[in-house]
Amino acid sequence: MSQKHRERQALIVIDVQEGFEDTTFWGMSSNPDCEQNIAVLLSEWKTHDLPIIVVRHDSQSPTSPLHPDQPGNRLMSFVSETVPDLLVTKHVNSAFYGDPGLHEWLQKQDINRLVICGIQTNMCVETTARMAGNLGYDVTVALDATRTFDLATTIPGLGTITHTADELMKVTALNLQAGGFARISATKEITATMS
């Protein structure tokens, strides 16, 4: 891979925060290898001196483990030890609606290729990947470097809908790749292209 090619590929690490360890609040999670795979990606990006963007969710709900007044708002230690090229804080699902402006920063850096990982697969990761695809970025989601939680809700006319975390990861992969928003890949496949 040429140096110019490398410089234009950024890693976006979304919401890898201590609050997501609270299974009492979130419920059952998927993919126990998520954090290990994120650490591998971070190490690879550092080795190649590639841009790293860390995103933190500052929930506006006082009862959320991700609220700024809660200890769960902190980034997990292996991420907080990383000095990112950009730290984005947000209150909504998309990292493109955070502060400072992600899209503007990427344009100034002439970056058009993104690898996205983090928590939750079907929420902030999927939303950020969809928006990135719509904005014209070449997007890869490292699915095995994401995880999510079982989800259930009652919807008028449809009744109660329940999906396991594993099912939601598969649906996100289908939505993103079949919808043309992003390619779905694995950590090993991504790092293999960087040597």
Rank of each mutant, 00 (worst) to 15 (best):
M1I: 07
S2K: 11
Q3N: 09
R6P: 06
R6C: 11
E7N: 14
R8V: 02
L11H: 13
I12H: 03
I12T: 03
V13S: 07
V13Y: 07
Q17E: 02
D22T: 05
W26D: 10
G27C: 05
N31L: 02
P32K: 03
D33L: 08
C34L: 01
E35K: 10
I38D: 01
I38N: 00
V40S: 03
L41W: 05
L42K: 07
S43G: 15
K46G: 09
T47E: 13
H48Q: 14
L50V: 13
I52M: 06
V55H: 07
H57K: 02
Q60Y: 09
Q60N: 12
Q60L: 15
S61F: 09
T63P: 04
S64I: 03
S64G: 03
P65C: 13
L66T: 08
L66A: 11
H67Y: 08
D69P: 01
D69C: 08
Q70I: 00
N73I: 10
R74E: 12
R74F: 03
M76I: 07
V79F: 01
S80W: 01
E81P: 00
T82H: 00
P84D: 05
D85Y: 01
L87K: 08
T89W: 00
K90Y: 12
S94R: 02
A95I: 04
F96T: 01
Y97N: 11
G98N: 01
D99E: 10
P100A: 04
H103N: 13
H103A: 08
L106P: 04
K108W: 04
K108Q: 14
Q109Y: 05
Q109V: 05
Q109I: 04
N112H: 13
R113Y: 11
R113L: 09
L114R: 04
V115Q: 11
I116Q: 00
C117D: 03
G118D: 04
Q120A: 14
M123Y: 12
M123W: 15
C124R: 06
V125A: 12
E126N: 10
T128E: 05
T128F: 04
R130V: 02
G133H: 01
G133N: 02
G133R: 02
L135A: 02
D138R: 13
D138H: 14
T140D: 06
T140H: 07
V141A: 03
L143C: 10
D144L: 06
A145T: 02
R147W: 08
R147T: 06
T148V: 07
F149G: 07
D150T: 04
A152Q: 14
T154P: 04
T154D: 10
I155K: 08
P156N: 11
G157I: 05
L158W: 13
G159F: 04
A165N: 07
A165G: 08
D166K: 07
E167R: 06
E167T: 09
L168Y: 00
M169C: 09
T172H: 01
L174G: 15
N175W: 09
L176R: 06
G179L: 03
A182R: 09
A182T: 12
A182D: 06
A186S: 11
A186Y: 07
T187L: 10
T187M: 10
T191A: 07
T191P: 14
A192K: 13
M194Q: 12
